[in-house]
Design a binder for these strands. Structure first.
Ligand SMILES: [Zn+2]
Ligand SMILES: [Zn+2]
Ligand SMILES: [Zn+2]
Ligand SMILES: [Zn+2]
Lengths: 166, 166
DNA sequence: TTAAATTATGTTATATTGTATTATTACTGT
DNA sequence: ACAGTAATAATACAATATAACATAATTTAA
């Protein structure tokens, strides 16, 4: 968080996560108002569910959670909501996990660079322009015009790494 | 191909593709002999099928092709063969497509950086150390130890881009 | 060179993830 | 009230992947 290229670092287990959720919903609400997007109750609820942890959630976990609310829900329900949320940058899809994670800075469009801990499953999001630029340059050199970059890195977060050394 | 950081560039449609397939099988055969891996007929056939085009192939397309051979085949058959081929670097998995593409240089371990044309579906593979290094450095700065990098870029290859400008 | 252990494959069933399609409901402006 | 639009419901299905157990082939070791 000190580094401006880090959109969200690995969060300690004891932070005030209620505040994370509240902030995410608040920002989404404001962004939607500004862009005249409709953050319907369903979309808002799915966003809230995605934000339950700082790790990727599968579509069917969300589906179960929706059903837990008492409402009836089927796959298209959650996928449509996710489409909206991904499309508008409130949520990122992690391709290597077929799962979804909340984005803390949907105000400006970007596609993040993700660090995924194979031990605790937490995810950090970077947005390092140097990385994007280098990849773009290399691709351009081959005549390739980039429309989207998918950068997902797996390994061990600092906390899990220290614990593993023992 | 002139650039040593490009493991396989976009191939023109008229190249001698039989040679590509033959070379891939030959290399795989040699590598397996050297590493005492077992390139069984099934694995060899799946590798050959993956190499039918320079674009990612889905597991179930391979399954259909195996059945086309007259043999009986079920999902575990092809997934197990793919596991072997991916594990040992003969094939790369494209996470963003849930599909598989042959690797032309399995001799040395690496995880490639892929350019995927959204129009013609052809794939090029780079292995640019500068990109890997930069990502590794940024991750290290966050205390993260990388075990694998997934870099998949979508866009338009040179040929398709020119054609689209019209 | 058998016997045991290991590795690979066959087989059946099921789990997980994602879409297509059509119908219905709720909201927006006239 | 009405038409036009956006969102959701509901059903059905497609695509991708794994679990679990049985059999066959291969390697290793007595
Ligand atoms: Zn939190
Ligand atoms: Zn961790
Ligand atoms: Zn070829
Ligand atoms: Zn192309």
């Amino acid at each position: 968080m000190t580094d401006k290229n880090v959109l969200s670092d690995f969060r300690p287990n004891d932070h005030n996560h209620e505040a994370c959720i509240a902030a995410a919903l608040e920002i989404a609400s404001a962004v939607c108002r500004e862009r005249e997007l409709r953050l319907t109750p369903l979309r808002r609820r799915v966003l809230e569910l995605v934000w339950q942890q700082h790790m990727p959630v599968g579509a069917y976990d969300l589906l179960d959670a929706l059903r837990g609310d008492g409402r009836r829900a089927d796959p298209p329900t959650v996928y449509r909501a996710l489409d909206f949320l991904v499309e508008n940058g409130f949520v990122h899809r992690i391709e290597s996990l077929n799962a979804y994670v909340g984005c803390g800075e949907p105000e400006h469009a970007h596609n993040g660079q993700f660090l995924i801990c194979g031990n605790c499953s937490r995810v950090a999001e970077m947005e390092d322009p140097a990385i994007s630029k280098l990849i773009r340059e290399k691709a351009n050199a081959l005549g390739f015009r980039i429309s989207q970059q998918t950068i997902e890195v797996t390994g061990l977060c600092g906390e899990c790494r220290e614990r593993a050394q023992t």
